[in-house]
Structures are given as structure tokens and as C-alpha cells.
Nucleic acid binder design. Structure first.
Lengths: 111, 111
DNA sequence: TCAGGTACTGACCTTTTTCTCAGTGCGAAG
DNA sequence: CTTCGCACTGAGAAAAAGGTCAGTACCTGA
């Protein structure tokens, strides 16, 4: 989320889903409610700092709902809001596209 | 394009469309063939360096076709390949989502 | 002759993003 | 009595992305 104005809807949407981790988090939450540590284990290579940072951002966007259960040890559950689910649905064709062309994309020479 | 392996199709796709300019370029090319300077004028705020950098990247992905007409002054035309068009189609629902929620997204407090 | 348009390229710098690592406080398990 | 898991937080550094600016070589119109 860097911009304040967008030249088209796609521009705005890519700003919301962009970055290294948001798509992965959205994907993990697609299946339902998840605890913090479950997400961390489910998303390969993510650090705790990045995970919270992204979750908090998505919370301020209204995509993710955060529920704290006051108990020891602490239990915090994350889930998608209706808004988040609507985003996930809009992402399905893109996810399918990526799935179909994954090997092509991975084979592209970098730098 | 930073990764070599992806955990899901969405991850791969977001890596391809991510960044500040690619969505905008894709959107501009959606309407047809464009010359370099036309793209520059059409995309508000982009520098020549960024525009070429992104176009070249998209060319190596096979999304964009670059055609040089050997003449003076030079004329270079950019257009989408079939692969690029297939990506654009997969992006339509996301673009629509962004369009629908643009005002919400713009109203989110940053930092 | 001099600015302007064509399509770039490369050096260098700033901003943004991501990563690493250490630490918190509590309870349960070994 | 030490370690583990829980859900974080913050400092500081590294890496990636993006931006500015100057220059190239040629032609056209003023």
C-alpha cells in the first residue's frame, strides 16, 4: 500500500495483494480460521515479524479479522472477512493462470 | 520476479504482475499496439527507464512482443502476445474488484 | 543553428521492503 | 529447573525496487 490514488482498478488491486507474502496468507486463510503459529508453519520461509506485519496491514484493509481469546497460553485466530473473501474470489482466475503456467514462469531466466 | 519456486499458482502470478508499473502497462497494451513514447505519455508518472525496464522484463516473460521498424526516427511497437492476453483476461475479475472498492482502498490510512 | 522528437542506456542515489536476531511473560512438560 | 510453545515487538541491517539525470545518434521543422 504505497499510493493514494490509482489510475485503474487493477492498479489498486495489485497494490493490495502485492508483496512477497500477502497472496500466500490469503491462500492459507482461504480454507478457514487459522491461529498465528499455524499460519507461520503453513507458510514456508516466513518470519514471525513479516507474518504479523502483513496480517496487521490486511486487518486495517478490512480483509482479515483478528480474534483474541484471553487465555494462557494466548490464542489468536485469524480469518477472512466478507471483503477478504470477495478479494479471494476475484483472485481465483489469476491463481488458475499461475497454476497453468507455473513451469513456464519458473523457467524464465532472472537477472 | 524474484523467486524460482512457488507454493501456489497465485504466488507465481502475483510475482509476475507485481510492482508499481506492470499492471498499468498491461492495461495500456490491452487496447492494442503502442509505441514507446505513446506508452510513456499514457502512463502518468513513469520514467523512460522504468518503462523500458518493465517492458523488457515482460518481453522475457513472453507477455509482450517488441517490434522494431528500422527507420529514422526509430519506431518500436509493443503489443501483447497470446500469453499476455491470457494473463490480462485472468486479471479482469481482479480489476473489477479494484474498481468496485477503489474508494475504500484509497481511504485506508497508510503508515 | 537550435530546439524537439525518436528510443533508448548507464551511473548513481533514495526509498521501500524484507530479513535477522534478540527479547517479553506466562504455563506446561520433561 | 530448564526448555518449549504461545503471540508477539523492536533495533538494525541488507536487499530490492524505484527515481533522477545526463548522454547517445539521427532527422525534422522553425
Amino acid at each position: 500500500m504505497k499510493k493514494r490514488t490509482y489510475s485503474c482498478g487493477l492498479d489498486a488491486a495489485v497494490d493490495v495483494v502485492g508483496g512477497k507474502w500477502k497472496a500466500l496468507i490469503l491462500w492459507e486463510l482461504h480454507t478457514g480460521v487459522r491461529r498465528f503459529a499455524e499460519l507461520r508453519r503453513g507458510i514456508d520461509g516466513i518470519s514471525e515479524k513479516m507474518l504479523i506485519q502483513q496480517l496487521r496491514e490486511m486487518e486495517t484493509y478490512g480483509l482479515v479479522h483478528r480474534e483474541v481469546h484471553r487465555q494462557v497460553p494466548p490464542k489468536v485466530e485469524y480469518s477472512l472477512t466478507d471483503f477478504g473473501r470477495s478479494l479471494n474470489e476475484a483472485l481465483i482466475p489469476l491463481g488458475d493462470w499461475g497454476e497453468r503456467h507455473m513451469s513456464t514462469i519458473e523457467a524464465i531466466p532472472r537477472d
